[in-house]
């Protein structure tokens, strides 16, 4: 099997947190331009899995190959991080920099871009997430939804081939969830390879090519979103769906 066919190729991945078996024999292959949605109860390992992909967490067994680069040392780690963007639940914008500076930091430092060029690039992505008029504000002056959109623009400024979303809407007020999801849908339509940990079923159905349902460190069920949500095969998924729909 040629690794280059896949954007992400995860084989026999195992991870322990000091005795706790967090990920058990995970095998996932993600094609170029594919959109994967990962869902599951809290503590099921979905965040851990997505964080292993760009080396935010270290795995103990198995291989992770991202855009043809196998993650094995510091050098490949930095290469992979330059090719993948990540968006966090808690935004994690740099509070001492304006939205624009947040976006130009990595292109200038990591890609060695000229400041002016980086600002042009950043403004392009900032406009694309619809906050051009807020570009010179500090994160504390922005709403949660705006902050998360800046975070998306910041990740896109590195022009990654893959975007990882770790519960991007979970800490947002309800009325701000939509503006962030709309941004993500637009990004999906542009052909980006995406992996999203989220519980937004509407989003999963709209853009997801495949849903992975995780429980207790393993992928319990996977398939097309409609089939998964309308006709769950496993009891565990049925229970999970009934819980999130009735709460």
């Amino acid at each position: 099997m040629n690794h280059l066919e896949y954007a992400i190729d995860i084989r026999n991945l195992n991870k322990w947190f000091s005795g706790l078996h967090a990920l058990k024999d995970i095998n996932v292959q993600v094609a170029e331009k594919e959109k994967i949605v990962i869902c599951g109860p809290s503590g099921s390992g979905k965040s851990t899995l997505i964080r292993c992909i760009n080396g935010m967490e270290e795995h103990q067994e198995g291989t992770i190959t991202v855009t043809g680069i196998e993650l094995k040392d510091m050098q490949t780690l930095y290469q992979i991080r330059q090719n993948t963007g990540m968006v966090f639940q808690s935004f994690n914008l740099f509070p001492h920099m304006t939205a624009l500076e947040n976006c130009t930091l990595a292109p200038t430092l990591v890609r060695g871009m000229k400041r002016k060029q980086a600002e042009e690039l950043a403004m392009e992505y900032i406009s694309r997430v619809n906050i051009a008029d807020q570009a010179h504000k500090y994160p504390a002056q922005l709403s949660g939804g705006q902050q998360q959109r800046v975070a998306i623009a910041r990740a896109l400024c590195m022009q990654p081939r893959i975007m990882l979303f770790d519960e991007p809407t979970s800490s947002l007020d309800p009325e701000m969830v939509k503006e962030v999801l709309d941004t993500m849908v637009k990004l999906a339509e542009s052909g980006m390879t995406m992996i999203c940990v989220t519980h937004e079923m509407g989003f999963a159905k709209q853009v997801g090519d495949r849903v992975l349902f995780m429980d207790n460190g393993s992928i319990v069920e996977s398939g097309k979103p409609e089939q998964m949500f309308d006709n769950p095969r496993t009891d565990r998924l049925q229970l999970f769906l009934s819980q999130i729909l009735h709460s």
């Binding site: 935010m56 991080r81 990540m86 994690n92 740099f94 001492h96 990595a106 430092l109 990591v110 910041r154």
Partner: peptide, 30 residues
């Protein structure tokens, strides 16, 4: 300085040294 600041900067591809100088120290200084 919250751990998330490290994570966000590292995920963007910055080296640890750069994260310390550009992200963590300016916030710690305050």
């Amino acid at each position: 300085v919250p751990l998330g600041q490290w994570e966000a900067a590292l995920a963007l591809g910055l080296q640890r040294r750069q994260v310390m100088r550009r992200i963590v120290l300016p916030q710690a200084l305050k």
